[in-house]
């Protein structure tokens, strides 16, 4: 199973787990598996049409999925997926 690393601002939606094991052949399948388990995180990652929101970036290892095949990028069993949110400071 692939692993999604959850950034601290979104951990309240995953029972404070810093990473979650997910199933899926592609990035979007993995993210949807995460949302399936923790529905409240969905709005923070995906738009209504299923695309990734403008204020979040998704990486496989060190690479931005936009440099690969975006949401349809195939992932390996041991893939580490990072969700990186825009953060602005302590009061935002």
């Amino acid at each position: 199973m692939a692993k999604i690393i959850i950034p601290t601002p979104l951990r309240k939606f995953t029972n404070n787990q810093k990473d979650v094991q997910v199933k899926g052949q592609t990035v979007i399948e993995a993210i949807n598996d995460l949302i399936n388990e923790y529905p409240e995180i969905g709005n923070n990652i995906l738009n209504d049409d299923g695309s990734i929101r403008n204020f979040v970036r998704v990486f496989i290892g060190d690479e931005d999925i936009q440099a690969l095949k975006n949401e349809d990028t195939a992932i390996r069993e041991d893939a580490v997926i990072s969700i990186i949110p825009a953060i602005a400071g302590g009061i935002s």
Partner: peptide, 15 residues
Amino acid sequence: IFDALSFETRTLNLR
């Protein structure tokens, strides 16, 4: 990227 809780650091490639 630095996570002070887990002490995990990553350096991601931007495009």
